[in-house]
Design a protein around this nucleic acid. Structure first.
Lengths: 233, 233
DNA sequence: AAGTGGTCTAGACCACCTT
DNA sequence: AGGTGGTCTAGACCACTTG
């Protein structure tokens, strides 16, 4: 493996990653100390450290003070994807975006929603159902619950014009976000809403957000057939 | 907002993130130059830079030389998930892992596979179909194509004992990985294989990997109903 | 051409964890 | 108690991008 004269931390990262992947350092192995690697590679320890931080964040190695750096024994593929605001996504693809609020009421959420929100004391929340359209065709149907205790202002917002998704993203910071991805089979209702055959396989993107432990919202976004979520690493 | 006397880069990151979230810096706004922030906060520019790198990777800001740092105008939710080796996933849940190779031949891949691999000149590849089981029940069915031009050794491996997934992860580094997530409806064949009702909604995790532009493999992992992929940010 | 982010280096000290 | 990673600082120079 040849290296440039002047090493950047990405060079070092790629070099080490290469040796992890070609099993010079096999899963479970201990890597040399940062200082030794720096000496061997001919760069500053800071540079090696920065490389290691990245490998650690990628899940390739685990680092412990005094314990040193180890290659993860059980390699994983770590992938990242973006969940954009649906309007932006449609417009970016060159489509015409449409939005219909089909339900808005205040009610008691079912236990599954309370569990997803990690809310222990049941209370009424704002319940919304809405359809996002691309070029007039159903794109994503969303079923959303918003905790009015955390976001009381939303009761005053005209959600028929601006989607709750958009208002929240722009106005309500969150500190934690959980995402669950799974598939369901279209019920008769969903098939009608999404204009697809009954029993179509539908991708569900379920998302809950919090601001320092206070629940903001839980949303089930059900995509029309053909929808793909793209991730990369 | 109060700050510790001695600032770490995570302190700075959280401080800036706080001001982005509370809209002191609103979407689209330009942030001060690193050097100015460093002066105002009373730390080295390096520290601010490290904080900014993190915010940039999280998708909160965009940085350009000379252009400066801007809060992303179109906020996205960036989520990360792990795709483990299926055996590890099952065992971690306390289940008993099983594996059956149901097909192994060398054939011409369909155009969809060639496209996924970004292979322009059609050639024969190793085609595998396998079923992963948890506690004896179908868990994930995989349909895989492996490019023998990139990974000729795999032809000699006993893939009835060790899954291709596992062999590849441990023996073949990759430099790029694309993931596509979508849902399908169970065909009669799939329903039989996965022991579920026909027309069940099934989550598909399609993955292609390359090593410096040379295709390694494309795999369609079709999960049995109930399977959830968990992500977080 | 100039401004801004990107990175390196060297030395220093801290903090956590294992022994 | 000692070893290892974690971080800071200051100054320097590079490289991209915009005006």
């Amino acid at each position: 493996m040849s290296l440039p004269q002047r090493l950047t931390w990405t060079d070092v990262r790629d070099h080490i990653r290469g040796h992890i992947l070609d099993r010079t350092y096999a899963p479970g192995d201990k890597l040399p100390r940062d200082a030794d690697l720096a000496r061997d590679l001919g760069c500053a320890r800071t540079t090696v450290h920065r490389a290691m931080q990245d490998l650690s964040q990628d899940g390739l190695v685990e680092r412990k003070r005094k314990g040193g750096t180890h290659v993860r024994a059980r390699p994983v593929t770590r992938a990242t994807f973006d969940i954009p605001i649906i309007r932006h996504e449609v417009e970016q693809k060159g489509g015409r975006y449409g939005y219909q609020l089909t339900r808005r009421d205040i009610a008691m959420p079912p236990p599954t929603v309370l569990a997803a929100c990690e809310v222990t004391e049941p209370r009424e929340m704002l319940h919304l159902e809405a359809l996002h359209l691309a070029d007039g065709r159903p794109y994503i149907f969303e079923d959303r619950w918003i905790d009015l205790k955390t976001v009381p202002e939303i009761a005053q917002v005209d959600l028929a014009r601006q989607s709750a998704n958009e208002w929240l993203v722009l106005n309500r910071p969150y500190t934690r976000c959980d995402v669950r991805l799974y598939a369901i089979s279209a019920s008769a209702d969903l098939a009608r809403l999404l204009d697809c055959g009954p029993d179509s396989g539908l991708l569900v993107i379920e998302r809950s957000t919090w601001i320092t432990d206070a629940a903001i919202t839980t949303v089930k976004a059900i995509a029309a057939p053909g929808y793909q979520l793209l991730a990369a690493s």
